[in-house]
Simulated scan of single mutants.
Amino acid sequence: MFFAMPMVSNRDIIHDLGPNDTEEDIENYVLRLENEMELGTRTLKSISKSVDTLIQKAKKKPPKNLLKLVERSTGFEGVLSFDSDEVQPLLSVKFLNNWSLPIVTLTCVARTLPNICTDTVDSLFNSVCEGLFYTFLVDENLNNDGEAKNIHIATRILWHEVEVTHKWLGNTLQRIDFREKSPRETLKWYSDKAEEVINKSDTDYKLENSQNKLIAANSMYRITQTIMRKYPGSEHISEEQLFALLSDMIGSIVVACLTNLPRVIAMKCHGSTIEEREASVRAAAKILGSTKMIIERLQARELPSLAPDQMACIDEWRAYLKQSTP
């Protein structure tokens, strides 16, 4: 029921080279342009050298905080447990899930737990900052049609607010403001604020600004309600336990999402013109170089036996995990 994550895409953009083909400065992989015979030999060599240089430079600057998060994560339980079907919807419409939105939502709650060591909170936040760069890439390249595009836009707007202004839908996220609250009271505060937004905006959900707020509020409401309902002991849960729970969920979702990176890298090697393909290959080279260690670690994981399009969708993962859970 499981398979190893493929390093080679269906379109053979990422090639595993044999020892006879490997140049000194390319260790394992080379990115080739589609229809490379369209290019002159000199141009192709120049591009190959440039790509290799980008890979090597990017390898020297891996996302270290993200790598730590990946190494701490041991399973995919959080992909399923962050949202429960037992939570009754408040909205007249149902929004899809994407990879990035629950990560942002969970991070908001974790970041405001007042008695967790500042270094620990900052470490998680830095991991999320680095991780979202790649989860946004997955959402943008593999889940960006129709309603999914609206979810992606709303998530980016929300993350900008959280990261830059330290607010969630206009509410300041200062840890000192939560010091008198128990962990459950913190969860309820977020849930109540989300419900207020939903009740005010549901009738105008087709308006862009209202829709963005609804998407963010719906995510927060469902996640906080899920934790309070699914973990009845949260009445007495400690901040450390809640922070660990939130961190585990974040790690599970990030790792599951990152299994799609090889496919994103492959897709970026294609463009409608030679010029676009060159730019895309260089972008792919940077991603490949910076995430090489992460991809190597993910190769050792057992993954759901889903088709590539299903692997790209968090709701498909959730459906699979529901069937696999006793």
Score class of each variant (00 low, 15 high):
Lys61Val: 13
Lys61Tyr: 05
Lys61Ile: 12
Pro62Tyr: 00
Pro62Val: 05
Pro63Glu: 06
Lys64Asn: 04
Leu67Gly: 02
Leu67Gln: 12
Lys68Asn: 05
Lys68Thr: 08
Lys68Pro: 05
Lys68Gln: 06
Lys68Tyr: 02
Val70Asn: 01
Val70His: 00
Val70Phe: 03
Glu71Leu: 12
Glu71Lys: 13
Glu71Tyr: 06
Ser73Lys: 04
Ser73Asp: 04
Ser73Gly: 06
Thr74Asp: 11
Gly75Thr: 09
Phe76Gln: 07
Phe76His: 08
Phe76Leu: 12
Glu77Met: 08
Glu77Ser: 12
Glu77Leu: 09
Gly78Asp: 14
Gly78Val: 13
Gly78Leu: 09
Val79Ser: 03
Val79Ala: 03
Val79Met: 03
Val79His: 01
Leu80Ile: 10
Leu80Met: 08
Ser81Met: 01
Phe82Gly: 01
Phe82Tyr: 14
Phe82Glu: 07
Asp83Glu: 14
Asp83Cys: 11
Asp83Trp: 03
Ser84Tyr: 04
Ser84Asn: 08
Ser84Ala: 15
Asp85Met: 11
Glu86Asn: 14
Glu86Ala: 15
Glu86Asp: 12
Glu86Tyr: 05
Glu86Ser: 15
Val87Trp: 06
Gln88Met: 09
Gln88Ile: 15
Gln88Lys: 13
Leu90Ala: 04
Leu91Gly: 10
Leu91Pro: 06
Ser92Arg: 10
Ser92Ile: 14
Ser92Trp: 00
Val93Asn: 04
Val93Tyr: 07
Val93His: 06
Lys94Ile: 13
Lys94Trp: 02
Lys94Pro: 10
Lys94Glu: 15
